[in-house]
Design a protein around this nucleic acid. Structure first.
Length: 195
DNA sequence: TGCCCGATTAACT
DNA sequence: GTTAATCGGGCAA
């Protein structure tokens, strides 16, 4: 039986949490799967919502670790973040892709597609598949409807630059499960020496 | 009050 | 590869 993640898991540096979440299982109302891709953000980061300081939208990011920050993207999609530490850094990880393992029929119904690789590979897609909305912002991650379980097997974590942003584009704050078929986009191959 | 634009996605050519 | 959809946040006026 995998270990249930408690709030203390998130009371750590956002990059440590990010690396440890690859391969972990995320369920919402009993539907979800294995986290294969995420990105880190913090208040020193021009690409982060928290960069310009506390506002009503991003207030959850400035609060305690272990809570969900959900925001609307492009006026259309919802995106899920997990708030981390250090305290006051307004840091969080954006869950970008999971490998669907539980509740496939519900996810297919909600997404309107059958291909498993199109269910949860992308931050907006996975929120639609898990039915996470702005109403879930501010909820604790260690209580229902959220359930998080630590990975039970070793994984290889790869990093790269983040996707879909126009600022701080060079920070290697994207984390992924090496070789996963459920990434929203592949990680570039390691550059050859001498390139 | 108005304006610009985004941590995206799907449907185009 | 390009672009429309769609709307609230954040900043200028």
């Amino acid at each position: 039986m995998p270990r249930r993640l408690t709030r203390s898991f998130f009371i750590r540096n956002v990059h440590k949490v990010a690396a440890d979440l690859i391969g972990a299982t995320l369920l919402f109302d009993g539907v979800g799967g294995r986290i294969v891709e995420l990105e880190a953000y913090d208040h020193t980061d021009p690409a982060a919502h928290s960069f310009r300081g506390l506002t009503s939208r991003n207030a959850v990011m400035f609060g305690p670790a272990g809570y969900a920050y959900v925001y609307r993207s492009y006026g259309i999609h919802w995106c899920l973040n997990l708030v981390c530490e250090p305290k006051g850094s307004a840091s969080a990880v954006l869950i970008r892709a999971i490998e669907p393992t539980t509740g496939l029929p519900a996810m297919r119904r909600r997404r309107g597609v059958s291909d498993a690789r199109l269910l949860c590979s992308g931050p907006g897609r996975l929120c639609e598949a898990l039915r996470i909305t702005g109403a879930d912002g501010g909820l604790r991650l260690d209580k229902a409807p959220f359930e998080l379980f630590a990975r039970s097997d070793p994984v290889e974590v790869v990093t790269g630059v983040r996707i879909g942003i126009t600022k701080a584009v060079d920070l290697p704050w994207r984390y992924g499960l090496k070789g996963s078929r459920f990434l929203s986009k592949p990680f570039p191959a390691a550059p050859k020496s001498g390139a």
